[in-house]
């Protein structure tokens, strides 16, 4: 099992689990964590767009200089940040 960030491009990848930690948030400063930025919330948002355990996704490209990762899920493309991409654990093959 590897993270989406390390996975090969343009091959089918099966999502095994989503392990979101603090990495999703970049540029965090000071107090005041807003409701809805916790782990559970991001898992829910990912699954709302179709990234959840068991689905097949395909990594299309990784943007340089810590840019986002583009994946194809079903019939649409989704951009996810690097923190999130490294939290999505996948396995090659159907």
């Amino acid at each position: 099992m590897i993270s989406l960030l390390e996975a090969k491009k343009n091959v089918p990848l099966r999502v095994k689990s989503v392990e979101i930690s603090g990495t999703v948030i970049t540029g965090m400063r000071g107090r005041g964590r807003r409701r809805g930025t916790g782990r559970k919330n991001w898992c829910r948002r990912l699954s709302n767009l179709g990234i959840r355990e068991g689905v097949i996704i395909r990594k299309l490209s990784v943007h340089p200089f810590f840019g986002p990762v583009i994946v194809r899920v079903g019939n649409c493309e989704i951009a996810v940040g690097r923190g999130m991409a490294s939290a999505i654990l996948v396995e090659e093959g159907k």
Binding site: T26, R29, G30, G32, R34, T37, C76, E77, M84
Partner: peptide, 13 residues
């Protein structure tokens, strides 16, 4: 102060 999450968006066809 506050936080900025990463990009996470659908790219419609």
């Amino acid at each position: 102060s506050g936080e900025s999450p990463e990009i996470f968006t659908e790219i419609p066809p």
